[in-house]
Structures are given as structure tokens and as C-alpha cells.
Design a protein around this nucleic acid. Structure first.
Lengths: 150, 150
DNA sequence: TATTGTTATACTCTATAACTATA
DNA sequence: TATAGTTATAGAGTATAACAATA
């Protein structure tokens, strides 16, 4: 049986591969991971004030300015005024941004199918159970520094 | 039973949490993820030419110059000459770099214990089986763009 | 001629601090 | 006085291209 430590290494390898897969796919649409993340929020929740985006992304307002600048330049989003509060800038998807989001959603489905499609229900269920265990452990144990070599 | 798509979302959430956990832990040692990755290679394989590091990290030689500059400034590594080839710069761990690596290794163990420690052998084995399945799928299916919202 | 590492330049993500416009 | 977003400044990671030293 695999060592706990080896299993962690394998899990970290998965993290690296997933990250590379996403980054590469996004690059084809002229997107980066942080920009796609912002796009995704608009896709899910509709137009939003930059401040809200900063909170949701857990990033500084300044940073959102930069991300939105990039997405405006690439034609994925547009800035507009808020109806009642003139301090606020509302960010919304353009048509290109909407189709890129839809494409992301499809890619997501495809990836799920690739990863889990040929898995038996039995194995899938067991895997999800382990995943849940690991996730709850991780959410609880945020205190100590669990450093890893990636 | 959980949907395939939901399982993927949960897996991606795990990726985010693991990344955050690592990044935070490394920051306490004055390290970043890319620098720690470089350190880890030295820890595993001993002193190396920058060119080798660039290949291993899949990054440009120029980038390695920058990473090593930072690690030299923080006292984790030192540059030295190659014995026979005077073009080459050998990078090796300082004492601080070695102890930081050892600390990373301990953190790795702790994390493995946190994530899997209280898991039954049965569930652990099932999880690893699923992990292996997902990993091999991902390694094979590198062609298409599997874009995701992080 | 080929290889190693550097300087030069540029882009992205990130942060804090100071400032403007509005509330 | 407080909030939204900007400009100013800075650091880190990344890339390509041109160049120097060495092989």
C-alpha cells in the first residue's frame, strides 16, 4: 500500500497538472487564470462593482483595476456606471466575454468527463469520500505551516 | 451521489486550498513557491548548474537567474564555479537553505498526517486508487483545452 | 559553432499609500 | 467621515532577444 507521504506527493502532482492544463487552455482564449476567475464571477453572478469583485477574489481593489483593464483591452468585459451610486463602476461581460465563459463551462464539463467519465460509480463514490475527508481536514487545520516543495 | 461536475469543483477547491496553505507556510521562511521549488531540487539532487535548474523547472534560464538572485539575497543558496566548465554556475544550498529544506520536508510529513492520518486504511486505499485514475487520465489527455474557472 | 548565464526590455499579478470623486 | 476607484510606486514571476564568455 502507498505511503501517506507518497500519496501527498501524488496529490501535489495532480495540483500541478491541473494548474498547467487550465493555464494552457485559458491562454488560447487570451486569458490568464486571475482574469478567468474574474470572468467566472461575472458569468455566475452578473454585473458587479469592482469593490465586490475585489472582495470575492480576495485581492486588493487596485489589483481589480488592473485585471479589469486587461479584460477591457481584450474585449471580454466593459465598464459602466451604476444607476444610483456614481462612485461605483459596474463591470459586465461583453459578448466575447460571455462566449468565453460558456466555453470555460464546456471545458469544465469535458474535464470532469475526462477525469471521472470512465470511473466506476463505486470507485467514484469512494474517491469523493476521500476528497471530502481531505477537504474538511484542510479547512480545519489552517493554523500550522504545512510547507511543501510543490 | 455527487455529480461528476461537482466533484471536479471540489477537486479544484482542494487545489486552491493546498496552494494557499503552501504559499502561506513558505512566506514565513521568506520563501515563495517558485523559489521553494528550486530549493527543493537542490535538496533532492545536490548542487546544480542553473541550466539544469531551468530545464527541471521548465522555465527560462533568465528566470532562474532571477530566482537564484532572490535566494542568494535571502541567504538560502550560494553560487559557485564549476570545476571543469567555466561557463557554468553551480548553485548549492547554504546552511540556511538546508535547514529550510529540512523544515519543508517536515511540513510535508505533517500535512500528509493532517490530510490522511485519521483516514481508515480502507478509505485511504480507495482514495489513492481514484487519485491514480485521475492522474493517468490527466497525463494522457493533454491535447484538448480543458478550461476551468479555477 | 554551440552552450551558459547575463543584461535589456516588457507584461502580468500582487501590495500599500496617497488622492479624487462621490456619498 | 466613509467608500469606490484611481494614480504612484514597488516587488515577484514570467518571457524573448541580444550579448559576453567559454567550450
Amino acid at each position: 500500500m502507498l505511503d501517506r507521504r507518497e500519496a501527498l506527493d501524488r496529490l501535489l502532482e495532480l495540483v500541478v497538472l491541473l494548474d498547467a492544463d487550465m493555464t494552457e487552455g485559458l491562454a488560447r482564449e487570451g486569458l490568464t487564470v486571475p482574469r478567468a476567475h474574474l470572468l467566472w464571477l461575472l458569468h455566475q453572478n452578473g454585473p458587479a462593482a469592482q469593490r465586490r469583485l475585489a472582495d470575492a477574489l480576495k485581492v486588493s481593489p487596485r489589483n481589480v483595476t488592473g485585471l479589469v483593464d486587461g479584460l477591457v483591452a481584450s474585449g471580454h468585459v466593459a465598464r459602466g456606471p451604476h444607476q444610483t451610486d456614481r462612485r461605483v463602476t459596474l463591470v459586465s461581460l461583453t459578448e466575447r466575454g460571455a462566449s468565453a465563459s460558456a466555453e470555460m463551462s464546456r471545458g469544465h464539463e469535458e474535464l470532469a468527463e475526462l477525469l471521472f467519465g470512465e470511473m466506476t460509480d463505486r470507485r467514484f463514490t469512494a474517491f469523493v469520500a476521500g476528497l471530502n475527508h481531505v477537504l474538511s481536514r484542510l479547512r480545519e487545520g489552517l493554523q500550522p505551516a504545512h510547507v511543501g516543495g510543490r
